[in-house]
């Protein structure tokens, strides 16, 4: 396992959101984190990335316990976080957004340059000088992933990459994620959309109210209507 999360608990102020999450991602694996709106998916990601001020439990990444490390140190170890709300630097151009994410080359993981990323996301290549604030939602989603890849990560936390995108863009996104998997990256991706998860992931973890309710393959979820009914359908 490149990432192991055990008994992860997290709070916003006094409100506890996560009640002991356990999950793991193996080398080169794509794991989907499923659950309804409000189940705790984004909070899980923020806690793993070190962004949640109050958290507790163990996060082991590449054999090191990173649960006490500051945000930037976790990122430098090669654990990239792609936020749901994209958080593009609106006053910076596409090129400059990528520059912010740039980190030195790391042994054993794919090395990304702006040119390679423009090849992966051809749209971005046509708007290198455009300001982040002047891009469409889909373009911003591509940019936020590309920006995190500039850090040459070995694991990417992708928070709801398909959210709010047109069906055609969602397909492009699935394609891009499969391309990243082919490069050997490990990916933990959160989704509400089971169909999208099915397109990209090897395994799935379902959370509800801050706790893991199911872990297994997508096929097992498909075969078990009760799980779907209980934790996923709205």
């Amino acid at each position: 396992m490149t990432l192991t999360v055990s008994n992860l608990r997290g709070w916003y102020g006094a409100a506890q959101i996560l009640f002991g999450i356990d999950l793991g991602v193996a080398d080169g694996e794509v794991v989907a984190l499923l659950g309804r709106n409000g189940a705790g998916k984004s909070t899980t990601f923020r806690a793993i990335a070190g962004l949640l001020a109050r958290r507790d439990g163990q996060v082991t990444f590449g054999g090191t316990d990173v649960s006490r490390e500051p945000v930037y140190a976790i990122a430098r170890r090669g654990l990239a976080y792609v936020p749901e709300d994209r958080r593009i630097f609106a006053d910076l151009t596409v090129e400059e957004n990528l520059e912010v994410g740039r980190q030195p080359q790391r042994a054993g993981v794919p090395h990304w340059t702006p040119e390679r990323l423009y090849a992966l996301f051809p749209n971005l290549g046509t708007m290198r000088k455009r300001l982040g604030g002047a891009m469409s939602g889909g373009e911003q989603q591509m940019l936020t992933i590309a920006r995190s890849l500039m850090g040459n990560p070995s694991l990417v936390l992708l928070d709801e990459p398909s959210e709010g995108l047109a069906p055609k863009i969602v397909e492009d996104m699935a394609h891009a994620i499969r391309a990243l998997k082919a490069e050997g990256l490990s990916i933990l991706v959160s989704e509400q959309n089971l169909h999208f998860a099915r397109l990209i992931s090897d395994r799935a973890v379902i959370i509800e109210r801050g706790q893991v309710r199911f872990a297994g393959t997508i096929a097992e979820i498909d075969a078990n209507a009760e799980i779907c009914e209980a934790f996923l359908t709205v």
Binding site: L51, Y72, V100, G101, G151
Partner: peptide
């Protein structure tokens, strides 16, 4: 300069800059 780009980025969203591996 990279320093300048980081400064402008941090002016907008310093948490995200940290999440991208920059020691603030």
């Amino acid at each position: 300069t990279r320093f300048g780009v980081l400064v402008r980025a941090a002016t907008q969203d310093r948490e995200m800059v940290a999440a991208l591996g920059v020691n603030q």
